[in-house]
Write a protein that binds this DNA or RNA. Structure first.
Lengths: 215, 215, 215, 215
DNA sequence: AATGAATGAGCATTCATTCAT
DNA sequence: GATGAATGAATGCTCATTCAT
């Protein structure tokens, strides 16, 4: 009301921390709500209720609904990045084995943790939060792509894999994981049969390694 | 090839028509808006503006915002179904050829028409519109899965393909198409390099047919 | 929420008109409320109620509570300016007569119209609305001071008045009018005896012309 | 000369003390805030910050925001009254001299101390705090008016002043002091030239004593 | 005494919906 | 049919107030 709009905003490291202690309960509740209903349809009352606090309390830790949203995504993305980097390129195994490990690890991470909701949010709300999209794209997706691409390249160099367009292949490989994740978060609740991700990943790994053809 | 408004009657009682004349302009504008911003963040003012009418006019043709949303999705889904069914099982070609045709056809349809926005909407808003999700799941996804599964089964039966878990394979095969579509609708605008779907589909087809392995 | 904050704001003529037709009812009601309770304590519900509309309607004509406030003040200030300029310097009378006319005219204007509330608002809310204060200062107060100072100077030049510090004298002359106006708008309602402005102005005119001293 | 905290007891039953020890820091900070922003726009956070305590501490000494406001005003008013009464009717000087002394004394008090903010608050918030207005009116304003009126009456009785409407004259005399005070507290910060009160009072005293006319 | 985290009532603002023209 | 002014319920956000520590 009274013009005093000079917050600095996130200037320096793109996503700095705001407080030492941040109630994880609120972020957890918020992630649930946003993943279920999207940004606009999520009510602060609902987040507060699920976090076991009142609406006013949210504003002790966050500046606005948008800030809560960004914080949730950022928090999860940071974990995401950590996971991506955790998958060190293990030189001692064959490329196929490394690939298989990465698959299984990702399937675990994406499906067993709350992180899986983030890609859905990026898809749904990306147009409304361009910085977040850009950040996610650069820090998670492209980084993951490079990692996977490196493994493929090494496999080709070693003669384990036949030469292929790496960029496209990376997307083909990752797609079923994305698919599973979105399925879990959106459609599965309307479907009587659960998706067996372990089995899907197994099939997928076999498929990309050996192809459909009966040779 | 894309059927416009010439379906004789409501195919499913759940989705009956309300009016004879429905301004396609409104639905077109609405699809754009919903795809861009999601249901809740889309304002009727915006739809009206893009459709070149006033807000009041929307209520001549639709009962509510929700009705507009459902109508948009239904309309597109109906076209979707038509497309899926159009891909007749052509007995005269090899299964691989049929598969390739289906791929290319889908890539065309999903990426070159406005239909591609629907899966994004289903994913984003599914939790808020369960009937739509269920309808889409049954009438489009599972129908498509059965169609593709049939082709695979025939390939296996004919000895063209090696035996594989059909259900999983179908998902692995369709996943990159979904991926492309979501990418186009969400992340591509934040990325400097455009996704070349034709090329991706080509790589994908090669990959699933022949696998990675250098045999 | 979605960053699209690029309104141009009042750039060009400092206070341009927003709409051709502006419901004077709203501004009238708003002036009453703001004058009674100040900016912060005024509720939009109250303004709406007094204007005979609902809260939402206010937003058809104004962008915010602050906008309503500024519009009210601006509107009244514009009238104010008109009044100030209306008092043409009449060359045909003695300076004392012109002075008397100005007094009586101002007393009428300030006390018989709603304009009288503006100075109170400027005083009360000036710190919170610096641009308004500055505008009022330049366009009304200093302009009025110059006008009055001109009359005094002419009186001195003609030998009608004795030489005096014009700047100070102007303030001494105008002060009782301001006093009356503030009294009317703030304290009179708590006092059993009404202030007789006509009589006060008469005494004042006599006093400044002839002084207290019994010569 | 300005009495601090040494009044023995509540002079008026309407304004009794609540606590023995009252942190002057809080009241000082509160007066600043209220004078700057008005009652409603002042935040307890701000008062607490300026007083160097936390918000909770305010409630150790005051029952509510309104209580703080009333306490501030009352505190200052009490000082005000003391000042007014301090100006004893000095019989040994001419009425003009007494008048001049009063003027100068008031100018000092109002402008050099924080008391000057009170009249502004009374004007701004009077409608929202009627008891305060009434109290101020009776205990300060009318008392001051009677005092000044007495001096005038004595001057007339002694033949020093010519007969005038005392009630009106009092207001005319006091008005420029009020004007100066409000100017200092509201408009001066938006104006490049500072108001020289000493000089204004000098001119004013000369003016009311001798008038404008060149006799 | 002093704190500051938590509260929740209150208010500005938005926007789907209605209806007189 | 089409309009757009008006509505009012819904909701994000503020801030005076409380209370366990």
């Amino acid at each position: 009301m009274i013009p005093e709009e000079n917050q600095t905003e996130q200037t320096d490291p793109r996503w700095q921390r705001r407080k030492e202690e941040r109630p994880g309960e609120i972020l957890k509740a918020a992630l649930e709500c946003f993943a279920e209903s999207g940004f606009a349809a999520t009510k602060l009352d609902e987040i507060a209720k699920r976090a076991g606090v009142t609406k006013g309390t949210l504003y002790l830790y966050f500046q606005s609904k948008e800030d809560i949203f960004k914080s949730v995504v950022r928090e999860e993305i940071v974990k995401n990045i950590a996971h991506v980097e955790e998958i060190a390129a293990d030189e001692s195994h064959s490329s196929a084995e490394i690939l298989e490990q990465m698959f299984k690890f990702w399937a675990q991470v994406f499906l067993k943790t709350r992180i899986g909701a983030v890609p859905k949010l990026i898809l749904s709300e990306g147009k409304n939060f361009p910085e977040i999209s850009r950040f996610y794209l650069e820090e998670v997706i492209q980084r993951g792509f490079r990692l996977l691409g490196g493994v493929l390249q090494r496999g080709i160099d070693r003669g384990e894999f036949r030469p292929l367009n790496i960029e496209n292949t990376v997307k083909c490989i990752i797609a079923p994981v994305i698919f599973s994740l979105l399925w879990k978060h959106s459609l599965e609740s309307h479907c009587d049969k659960k998706l067996d991700v372990e089995s899907l990943v197994q099939t997928h790994f076999d498929l990309i390694l050996n192809g459909l053809s009966n040779k």
